[in-house]
Nucleic acid binder design. Structure first.
Lengths: 205, 205
DNA sequence: GGCGTCCCCCAATATTATTCGGGTTGCGGC
DNA sequence: GCCGCAACCCGAATAATATTGGGGGACGCC
């Protein structure tokens, strides 16, 4: 290998940065050229110097990691992989859709992290076993809500009363109740007070 | 220093484990004797071999880190410090109350982690700047709920109806409504549907 | 077209929640 | 003791919400 791959680390945990630096320090084919703890600074960095691979945490203090991804991906010849602590299924789907080339959990072994980098740079898509398992558990809940039901769920989550929702949607209050009853049925809960909670569990919000 | 301090790491992020191993490997006075990623295995470990210092993550996959702390602290001559990713104020207070000797954020620099270990072993209590700042922001708003209000809030959070709550507490439904109105007033929300949400924000649950 | 299905809507009615006026208890201070 | 105060409780009237039953429109399909 004639030249090393330049790696940029984006993670607010200093200890994680340190661990990654140590890890890649032991590998000849990689070189860490920077480590950032804020999402807002990433774009400037990748435009100021060549970066081949970005290792991005989804959980940053200032910006949602997913937004950083959206901002930098595709702008130049650069591969982005996600290294995430908690596993939020819909964020992972979004990341892949946006063009992330690999997803690894911080709970995965170091071997998996390296494997993800190698695979991503080779043009493959890599999802670690830990993440894959989590994705498997969440196989599409077959709860399909109509647009009306979705809208009402949305307002419900804001804590609005039926009357307010009725006013907003320009329908009669009993109609709101009707849709809420449908939500209760589809979400399989007994009380209205549990609907929002359940919807959050299912990532319907 | 005649002997090294034995450190046990408890953190589900392998990369963090690795970073800590690397960090303490560069310090003569410390030695990492183990790294666990499950809370359930901690107790067995500390009883099987001498451990001077436990570095504990609060966010573990199986058990709440705070419970692990409660289980192991005081059982023997052992110091526990908390190394946490997200900063949940009430958990931090609980941890200190339970006997944790230091709190450090994963976002803190490595120097702070080492400082926390040194201070904790010296008998001091150490709270990192990052954590201290977060604690400062949250200066408890003085929302004091009566025991009745607390009980009703609890059932409310379970999604029960007024009638059910009335039955459980053996009081009349209108009385439940009365208490709920008090909760609305004290929590400063306009709708019942926001009470639980607000209570969670204020860590009243 | 005719049929089935799904989503949407509403009025009348039943159920639940809230407000209001009023009462009890317990507790610290004058 | 007596006052004020706060927390607690209730019944009856009122307001809000849920359910039921019925109907309309859009779509796909034979």
């Amino acid at each position: 290998m004639v030249s090393k791959h330049n790696i940029l680390i984006v993670d607010d945990h200093r200890i994680t940065q340190s661990g990654l630096r140590f890890l890649f320090g032991s590998l000849d084919r990689y070189m860490v050229v920077g480590a950032l703890d804020r999402g807002a600074t990433v774009n400037a960095f990748v435009q100021s110097q060549p970066v081949d691979l970005v290792i991005l945490d989804l959980n940053l203090p200032d910006v949602r990691g997913i937004n950083v991804l959206a901002e930098i991906v595709g702008s130049r010849d650069m591969t982005v992989i996600i290294l995430t602590g908690e596993t939020h299924v819909n964020e992972i789907h979004s990341a892949l859709k946006l063009g992330a080339r690999a997803i690894v959990s911080k709970s995965d072994s170091l071997d998996h992290i390296v494997a993800a980098c190698d695979a991503a740079l080779a043009g493959e898509i890599y999802v670690s076993p830990h993440i894959g398992e989590a994705l498997g558990k969440f196989q599409q809940p077959p709860v399909a809500l109509s647009s009306r039901q979705m809208a009402i769920l949305h307002y419900l989550a804001q804590g609005e009363t039926n009357k307010e929702i009725a006013y907003r949607l320009a329908i009669a209050p009993p109609t709101v109740s009707f849709h809420i009853a449908e939500l209760r049925r589809k979400l399989d809960v007994s009380h209205n007070r549990k609907i929002v909670e359940r919807a959050n569990e299912l990532n319907l919000l």
